[in-house]
């Protein structure tokens, strides 16, 4: 995978809202053909990162560091103004079709306007053809074109959102909890669809989710975000089979097993201190079961263990 070209790269990236840091030191890249799952609980800063990647941070936000995006010529370029990239270089798949589509517009109208935006010279019949093709590419039929959002099932709506994200043929797909409104079967199918977009269309797919179990299995790499910082990044198989950061381990232990034996109590993950307060310590120094005095004195440096990178003074180590 790393030999593939990089489509999106964040380096030392951070965001302040009203001069309070809520995201810091983010280093992350997404390559062509891969699916990356960014896992973070509510309050981890994942929404801020998502908005920043789309250039849709609130007016009071300030960003630090670099964001680089793929160019049409294959190069990578730093971008400050992301406006022209929206829908064209980076396609966004929102969370819930019932709230992310405009209730008074049909599927056809939604598709047509995005197609018109990204291909200004096109005619309406050309766009109608493209709209039907887009629906086919996400496993739907043209039958849905005249429907309003409320008349779509959860799975159909989510696929329409993917079709809309694909309308500008973006190099990168950014999905925000794309399966949270879906039942297991539809979840499975949607993840397969996103994965095919990476494998077959060679896009880079970044799925942001609060749920390690729901999306990580479909990803090639997992990045865990907590308290506004990344704490562990690595190949999915490595991270899920042998988590090294105490938080990752706790997130996994928090999910009940399907079959016995079951623990009498499920683990509840330690809470990180807010990003703003962490300058010279580990965000978990106050709540982590493994914390030693050094954790409260020095921020943990990144180290590579068993095929992934982890930011912890006392990683769990190979079992």
């Amino acid at each position: 995978m790393p030999t593939e070209r990089v489509l999106l790269q964040a380096e030392g990236f951070g965001v302040d809202y009203d001069s309070t840091p809520i995201l810091a030191d983010i280093a992350l890249s997404v390559h062509a053909g891969e699916v990356v799952a960014l896992i973070g609980a509510s309050g981890s800063g994942k929404s801020a990162l998502l908005r920043a990647l789309l250039g849709l941070s609130p007016a009071t936000a300030q960003t630090r560091g670099l964001l680089r995006f793929a160019q049409a010529d294959g190069g990578l370029r730093e971008r400050r103004d992301i406006t022209p990239l929206r829908g064209a270089t980076i396609g966004f798949v929102p969370q819930d079709p019932q709230t992310a589509l405009s209730a008074h517009r049909t599927v056809a109208q939604h598709l047509d306007e995005v197609l018109a935006t990204h291909a200004p010279g096109s005619t309406r019949p050309m766009r109608a053809e493209q709209a039907a093709a887009l629906l086919t590419s996400v496993g739907l039929t043209g039958e849905l074109l005249p429907r309003y959002p409320h008349a779509l099932s959860g799975g159909q709506g989510q696929r329409v959102l993917v079709a809309l994200a694909l309308a500008g043929n973006p190099a990168i797909l950014l999905a925000d909890e794309p399966t949270s409104a879906l039942d297991p079967r539809a979840t499975h199918e949607l993840l397969a669809l996103l994965q095919a977009q990476a494998r077959v269309q060679r896009r880079g797919v970044l799925i942001v989710s609060h749920d390690l179990s729901a999306t990580a299995h479909a990803a090639d790499r997992v990045a865990v975000l907590a308290g506004g910082r990344l704490v562990e990044i690595g190949a999915t198989a490595a991270v899920l089979s042998q988590p090294q950061h105490p938080l990752t381990a706790a997130l996994m232990a928090a999910c009940p097993p399907l079959t016995p034996p079951r623990p009498a109590r499920l683990a509840e993950a330690p809470r990180p201190a807010p990003c703003a307060r962490v300058a010279r310590a580990c965000a978990f120094a106050a709540t982590c079961g493994r914390a030693q005095s050094v954790c409260a004195e020095t921020p943990p440096a990144w180290r590579t263990i068993a095929g992934r990178e982890v930011a912890c003074h006392w990683p769990l180590g190979a079992a």
Partner: peptide, 12 residues
């Protein structure tokens, strides 16, 4: 069968 733990990634 639809549980995500059973998700079989397409070959990279």
């Amino acid at each position: 069968a639809a549980r995500t733990e059973r998700f079989v990634p397409l070959s990279a």
